[in-house]
Simulated scan of single mutants.
Amino acid sequence: MIEIKKFNFQDVKQKFQVKKPWDDVIILILNILIALPLFIILHQNLINPNWFLNIDRVVLFVAMVIVIQIILRLLRTIIIVCILLYLILLIYGSTIGNYGFNSVYEDYNSMMYSMSYNPYPQDIIIAKLLPFPNKSKIINAIEYQNPKIRNFAIKATSEHFKEIKGYSEYRTIIQCFAVFKEINSRWNYVSDPKAGDYIATATESLLYFSGDCDDHSILMAASVRSIGGTPRLIHTKGHIYPEILIGSQTDLEAINFLIKNELFPIESSGKKLYYHVDERGQIWMNLDYTAKYPGGPFMSEEILGALTLD
Rank of each mutant, 00 (worst) to 15 (best):
C82Y: 12
L245M: 07
I244G: 11
P147K: 07
K272M: 04
N286F: 10
I70H: 05
P21F: 06
V179Q: 05
H276I: 06
K260A: 13
N118I: 00
I199D: 00
C82A: 11
I255W: 08
F257T: 05
T290Q: 13
R232I: 04
G93A: 03
I174Y: 09
A195N: 12
S300V: 04
G97T: 07
Y198C: 05
A178R: 12
L30K: 10
T250G: 14
I283H: 05
E243I: 02
L60P: 01
S191N: 14
G211Y: 14
L90S: 03
D278W: 12
W51P: 02
D215W: 04
F101I: 15
A178K: 12
A156K: 10
N134R: 15
P131N: 07
F9R: 01
S158P: 00
N102P: 00
T157W: 13
F152E: 11
Y113H: 13
E3M: 06
V58L: 15
I88A: 13
T236H: 14
V104K: 03
F264S: 05
I91G: 03
E279M: 04
N188R: 15
E267I: 03
Y113D: 15
K155P: 03
F9M: 10
K137D: 01
D278G: 11
D123G: 10
Q17Y: 05
E253V: 00
P131S: 06
T95K: 02
F9D: 12
Y275H: 13
P49A: 03
I255C: 08
T203R: 14
S185V: 10
D212L: 10
C176Q: 04
G211S: 09
L129E: 02
A63Q: 05
N98Q: 11
N134Y: 14
I29Y: 03
N31I: 05
M299C: 01
Y275G: 08
L304P: 00
E163V: 06
D214S: 11
L273N: 02
N184C: 03
L72G: 07
S114T: 14
I266L: 09
M112C: 02
I227G: 06
I78M: 06
C82L: 11
Y120R: 10
E302G: 07
I71S: 12
N48T: 00
L33V: 06
T230G: 01
R280P: 01
K13G: 09
T203Y: 11
G166E: 04
K135F: 04
T157N: 06
G270Y: 08
D212M: 11
N50D: 12
F161H: 11
R150N: 14
I174Q: 07
D214T: 08
I303E: 12
H276W: 03
M1S: 04
I124P: 00
R73H: 12
P242V: 03
